[in-house]
Amino acid sequence: MEVPPSDASLAARVRAGCAPLWRIPGGLLQGFGAYCLLMAEAFNLPRDLRPSLYARNLATQMVQVGIDSIPIVSLATAFSGGVVVVQAIYQLENPLLPLSIVGTFAEQSILLELGTLVTAFVLCGRVGARIAAELGTMRVKEQIDALEAMGLNSRSFLVVPRVLAGVLMFPVLYVVAATVGMVMGGVVAELSGVLTIQTYWEGARLFFRPYDVFFGLVKSLVFGFVITSIACYTGYNAEGGAEGVGKATTRAAVLGCVWVLFADYACAALLL
């Protein structure tokens, strides 16, 4: 940071103090450019690519991104579904409104928003952080250099299977999340004693539109790309030792959450 001389004018001091702020847009732009470049280079698949090598890597990533995430995603969305129903019962205590509207409220909330967003936030931590830590460690321990030195396109080899696994498995996780959330909502509705599970499902079916599921699937696909690609970018470009890996991991989780929110808004604005 530039330190102005003590006799500098107030304007000069303010200007010097704000200098780091002016660098932020430039840094963001540079980072976005580097991210786009990495993705372009990664998906420019080599002609001598061995499908078997990538397929094995993709299968491993699909298990790690998708199958291994089912318990935590189920847990998170189960509680979300339960909370939505409890809050709906609390807010809709109006004799003029039918009790089945609780089911409608839960269905809309879970299919359109919670099923994807809660899943995405959970996976920013679980999947994004893991990918960034893994690639960051490979970077600082020269394993990425070793891949390059062998004559392998390390970007394609490391990034493509992880991003593809995210894009393919996030919609699956969304289906699991939405199902668990809705079922848990029904259980909580029954346990509340205010409405029966049949009334809950009637309300859920009343305003159900298949497009809501389509919207959720598209959003989860977008979130899958955003989370895994950002994690690959931060991990692949990690610098230094353990500290660098830590920073890359934190950036993956934070940037992933921030860009998921942007993507959430963009999807809603474009598709609803």
């Binding site: 070793a146 062998m150 004559g151």
Partner: peptide, 23 residues
């Protein structure tokens, strides 16, 4: 080009200082 460079790299074996084995 990057593709040609990768072909040249296949003529090399490299032993890195820390080994750089895949964990």
């Amino acid at each position: 080009t990057y593709s040609e460079l990768r072909q040249v790299r296949r003529k090399f074996g490299v032993l890195f200082q820390g080994g750089a084995l895949f964990d």
